Amino acid sequence: RDEDEKEKIKEALKRGNEDKAKEIAKRANVSPEEYERLRKEAE
């Protein structure tokens, strides 16, 4: 379940949809550090 959320965040970031990614991260309680890591992976 947690991994699904992280995949959704990465997908949103790949599409350049940072607002959606942040919204998912907030809902999934993803830490800022984890969010940054996902953002780097998505580049």
Rank of each mutant, 00 (worst) to 15 (best):
D4N: 12
V30P: 00
L38H: 00
K40L: 14
N17A: 10
E36F: 04
R1P: 14
R27W: 05
K20Y: 14
K10M: 06
K40A: 14
E41K: 05
E43M: 15
K6C: 05
L38M: 07
E3F: 12
K26I: 12
E43N: 09
E5A: 15
K6G: 08
K40T: 11
A21R: 00
A12D: 02
E3Q: 13
D2N: 13
L13V: 04
G16V: 01
E3S: 12
E18H: 12
D4W: 13
K8Y: 06
A28R: 05
A28S: 09
G16L: 03
Y35E: 00
R15W: 11
I9L: 07
A42K: 02
E43R: 10
L13H: 02
E34L: 04
G16W: 02
K6A: 09
E18G: 06
E36N: 06
R1S: 14
E34N: 02
K26S: 10
E34F: 02
R1L: 14
R15N: 14
E18A: 09
I24Y: 04
I24F: 03
K10S: 03
E7N: 12
R27Y: 07
E11A: 11
K26G: 07
Y35C: 02
E5K: 07
A28L: 15
A21Y: 00
E5G: 06
Y35N: 00
E7R: 14
N17L: 14
K14E: 04
P32I: 10
A28E: 05
K26L: 13
I9E: 01
L38G: 00
I9W: 01
K20V: 15
P32W: 12
E33M: 08
L38N: 00
D4P: 08
E3W: 13
K6L: 15
V30Y: 05
Y35K: 00
E3G: 12
K22A: 09
A42I: 12
R1K: 14
E41Q: 11
A21E: 01
L38W: 04
K22P: 01
E43Y: 15
P32M: 11
D19Q: 14
E23S: 08
S31R: 05
E36Q: 06
K22M: 13
K40Y: 12
N29V: 03
R39T: 05
R15A: 15
E3L: 12
E3T: 12
K10L: 11
E23V: 06
R37T: 07
K6F: 15
K14P: 00
D4Q: 12
A42Q: 05
R37E: 08
K6Q: 08
A12G: 01
D4Y: 12
R39S: 06
A28G: 07
K20I: 14
R15D: 11
K14Y: 05
G16E: 03
E23I: 08
E11D: 12
R1D: 14
P32F: 10
R27T: 09
E43S: 09
K14C: 07
N17Y: 10
E36P: 00
E33L: 07
L38V: 03
D19M: 13
V30S: 01
I24W: 03
E36T: 04
A21M: 01
K6H: 13
E33G: 07
E34V: 05
N17R: 10
K22L: 14
E34W: 02
L13T: 01
A21V: 01
D4C: 12
D19H: 11
D19K: 13
E23R: 08
E43H: 11
E34P: 00
K26Y: 08
E33S: 08
R15M: 14
A28F: 12
N29R: 09
A28I: 13
E18L: 11
E41Y: 04
E33W: 06
K14M: 11
E18W: 09
R15K: 12
R15P: 01
E34G: 02
R37L: 08
E23H: 05
R37Y: 06
A42V: 15
E33K: 06
Y35T: 00
E36D: 10
A12P: 00
E41V: 06
Y35I: 03
E5T: 15
R39D: 00
E18P: 08
K20M: 15
S31Y: 03
K20W: 13
R15E: 15
A25G: 03
D2R: 11
E33D: 09
E36S: 04
D2F: 14
R15G: 10
G16M: 03
I24N: 02
N29F: 07
R1Q: 14
N29C: 05
L13Q: 01
K40R: 15
D2T: 13
N17W: 14
K6W: 15
K40W: 15
P32D: 13
